[in-house]
């Protein structure tokens, strides 16, 4: 059937500025019938611009923490009770005994977390050579076995423990029969310019079996931790506290140093962590990724629909494959990807 153009409509269209503007706007979104190509917003030049924009955004998110530290960060809601509960659930499922929450290990974990924020590093051993065992020994915890798991940038307790379980070395720590006790610290601060929450998990088995914390001691500690704003004054030794510098470490043997703080005092202020930075960088990048992917997928879908409707045959790649790729990316970013790094 021969299509006939209505000359009245064409004439009116040419005289109607609004129609012209509308056509110019839609021109960028719709495939071009005469050139038999995709829409302007799907041209090669446009795709290159999208890639450059994404790179620019990534660059901006890297630059902001250098200029304005603490503005970008990772929102989190992590607490020690949940971490302990999830850890012990995993151990129970593997037929192992539960770990008891130990006060000294928890204080050591908190000092380790604070040390990482103060010295701005993310590692088991600090740049000046301080090892995790130094923090444990400084709390007068005489151990046979000790271990450490670290996590940062996570949003909730469940993800932290799940991430540790997915990693063979961290799972070995969590499910080791060599440990009887555990200490946790959940501390907020700024690391590399990003506001984040560090989770430190220290494992231990005391040299004397009778020194393992009892259920009552653990419950008392958990009660204290739940009074998160309550501080129990720490006894500060005359020399101002343990010095974690390398030169000091070289002088310290593996025995407990004399200047260690009194074990009967405790200062536990970081029990649970709700961190709400100004801009949650994880959510922002996920949102931007999904927006870009969704926008381009929509344009491709519109391209397919309009081309079929108007019978436009284009010499281009497989549009369905492009849409599938972008849907795969969107699905992964939205449903699977979780913020967080373990060490």
């Amino acid at each position: 059937m021969k299509l006939e153009k209505n000359p009245t409509i064409i004439k009116n269209w040419r005289n109607n500025p609004k129609a012209i503007d509308k056509f110019r706007f839609m021109y960028h979104f719709l495939p071009k019938e005469q050139e038999k190509t995709r829409a302007g917003l799907l041209s090669h030049k446009a795709i290159i611009i999208y890639c450059l924009l994404i790179v620019l955004i990534a660059g901006i998110f890297r630059l902001i923490p250098m200029v304005f530290p603490g503005v970008l960060g990772y929102a989190s809601n992590i607490n020690i009770e949940d971490l302990l509960s999830y850890t012990n659930n995993r151990r129970k499922q593997s037929g192992l005994s539960e770990l008891r929450l130990n006060r000294k290990l928890s204080i050591a974990a908190e000092k380790k977390a604070s040390h990482m924020f103060d010295k701005n590093y993310w590692a088991h051993i600090s740049p000046d050579g301080v090892e995790p065992w130094d923090f444990i020994l400084d709390e007068n915890y005489d151990y046979i076995y000790a271990g450490e798991n670290l996590a940062k940038n996570f949003s909730d307790s469940d993800d932290v423990v799940e991430a540790w379980m997915e990693s063979p070395s961290h799972r070995d720590n969590l499910l080791s029969p060599n440990y009887d006790e555990v200490g946790f610290a959940v501390v907020n601060g700024v690391l590399d310019g990003y506001e984040t929450t560090l989770v430190v998990q220290l494992f231990g088995r005391p040299r004397e079996k009778g020194q393992v914390a009892s259920v009552f001691q653990e419950q008392d500690l958990l009660k204290e931790l739940n009074q998160s704003k309550t501080e129990i004054a720490a006894a500060v030794p005359p020399n101002g506290g343990p010095d974690y510098s390398l030169s000091e470490k070289e002088n310290i043997s593996k025995e407990v140093p004399d200047s260690a703080p009194s074990p009967s005092s405790v200062s536990m202020t970081n029990t649970s962590s709700e961190n709400e930075p100004l801009i949650d960088v994880a959510m922002a990048t996920r949102g931007i990724s999904i927006a870009f992917g969704g926008f381009i997928s929509s344009l491709l879908a519109l391209d397919v629909w309009y081309s079929k409707r108007k019978g436009i045959l284009k010499f281009t790649g497989h549009t369905f494959a492009h849409i599938t790729l972008l849907f795969l990316v969107i699905f992964f970013v939205w449903f699977v990807l979780r913020p967080g790094v373990i060490l």
């Binding site: 795709i47 999208y50 960088v281 990048t285 990724s289 281009t316 790729l325 972008l326 990316v329 992964f332």
Partner: peptide, 21 residues
């Protein structure tokens, strides 16, 4: 070929942005 390269690059860029933070 250029189209597939560019769409592949776009997918990779989007993933890289999300994975970098």
């Amino acid at each position: 070929v250029l189209e597939y390269l560019l769409f592949g690059l776009t997918g990779y860029s989007i993933l890289y942005l999300a994975l970098s933070f």
